[in-house]
Design a protein around this nucleic acid. Structure first.
Lengths: 238, 238
DNA sequence: CTGCACGAATTGATATACTAGTATCCAAAA
DNA sequence: TTTTGGATACTAGTATATCAATTCGTGCAG
């Protein structure tokens, strides 16, 4: 039998390696562009060129193209064959749907988490909330948002459905982009922390109904007002 | 300066539709391999070689690579850098999660569909069910399955959440692969039709609770018995 | 006989070169 | 002045070549 079988997928190899190419240039470029689009440094609707990007990064078009293809699948860019590549506009119609998807899946994860969470799990949530308090106090929105994501991801993991989080991440993309357009609301970070605490408490108490209710309330509170944004930023939406 | 200044509003396509050439060879190869893997013509675990595939299709390695990268994102192949590419084994651990995802999202779509379905919508469902009856009578499992997917997609569309269907499609992938391994159960097609009719009736009656119940029952009925399959097809699962 | 080190072969990753579709601009005709 | 058709210069798609890393066999040393 000549069939090869990879013995170990998770070969961390020589993790300290300075030269090991765990990250291909293509994925590095993907990360960069992904972040730039999500942070709106690259504005919706603007044209991209494989060639120019390749020159900026000092690489050939091949890895750039690979990155753009992945971004296209994520819905962050649109590729028109033989014509051009553009940063995708935020699809207004997709936003309410994304909210529904979030509510549907996070309802499932938070319910299951409330059923089976262990003391260790709660401790993990507490640690995340603690970090959020720090970032809120220091007024660091970026890191705060990072920990916000970590909180929701943790609940997925606790529920035993880590794959759901990756779905949520892609569903959240356009919402997050729109949210970047909203001015930071004073005190919003504190409210988020409060809501997270409520969710955490319900999970810790194994109170499924209360956990679901708290999560639904939390998710309803973060919906950006699209109609208003469209007026202020015409051309950013489709 | 001769540089062309493109106003960012210019989207090159009045392409709100299907007029664009999307028959790039890369996507054609993707479709082919996708179908081959899903139908198990390509068995889980076997090695693939870009070079050989390129020769078979009579193209260069570039579009083949592009297709493989997309398949890797869908979880249908695994690429080990500098080592090899393999048709992914069916991840047993992901199957229960996929079922949960399906139940969560289809619960949402069927509830909403039951709320707002119009007579036209019901007619569309009836048409699909009618086609299913034909394929069942003629014992055409492949086309039957096609209409089965169409039924669930239609419900997503009726609910106003077409994007949920595309999520469901990718979530369903591994389930469908496993299901291909099960022997066709005699009379199963007829049961599916009955369950679809029940769902359809509940939607038509705008009975949200009954629609949800019928859908949950339907989804529970199509879960393949993984443990048994693992015994019969060792090496197909991971 | 065993273990380790080295090297050839094979693979995916990247670079470069070429092809073919598309939009824009400008000139010529109405 | 407006319209229209084609030249032109762009783009992404594809082909080919090169690079680098991993694997596995082989041979030498212990």
């Amino acid at each position: 039998m000549s069939k090869r079988q990879r013995p170990d997928v998770s070969s961390p190899a020589f993790a300290s390696g300075a030269k090991i190419r765990r990250v291909t240039t293509a994925s590095a470029i993907y990360e960069q562009l992904h972040a730039a689009i999500l942070s709106l440094q690259m504005k919706p609707g603007v044209a991209l060129q494989e060639k120019r990007i390749a020159e900026e990064f000092g690489v050939s078009r091949t890895p750039v193209r690979e990155a753009l293809l992945r971004l296209a699948e994520a819905g962050l860019v649109e590729i028109f064959p033989q014509s051009g590549t553009f940063v995708s506009r935020i699809p207004v119609s997709a936003i309410p749907e994304a909210v529904v998807i979030r509510k549907s899946l996070e309802r499932t994860t938070v319910e299951q988490a409330a059923e089976i969470a262990t003391a260790d799990d709660i401790a993990r949530l507490d640690a995340i909330i603690a970090r959020q308090r720090v970032h809120a106090a220091l007024n660091e929105p970026s890191q705060f948002h990072e920990q916000d994501e970590a909180f929701h991801e943790a609940i997925s993991v606790i529920a035993g459905y880590p794959g759901i989080w990756s779905i949520l991440k892609t569903a959240k993309l356009q919402i997050d982009r729109a949210r970047r357009l909203t001015l930071p609301v004073r005190g919003r970070m504190d409210s988020v922390i409060e809501e997270h605490v409520t969710i955490r408490d319900a999970i810790a108490a194994h109170d499924v109904d209360r956990a679901r209710g708290a999560m639904m309330h939390h998710l309803s509170a973060v919906i950006p007002d699209i109609d208003e944004l469209r007026l202020v930023y015409p051309g950013y939406f489709s």
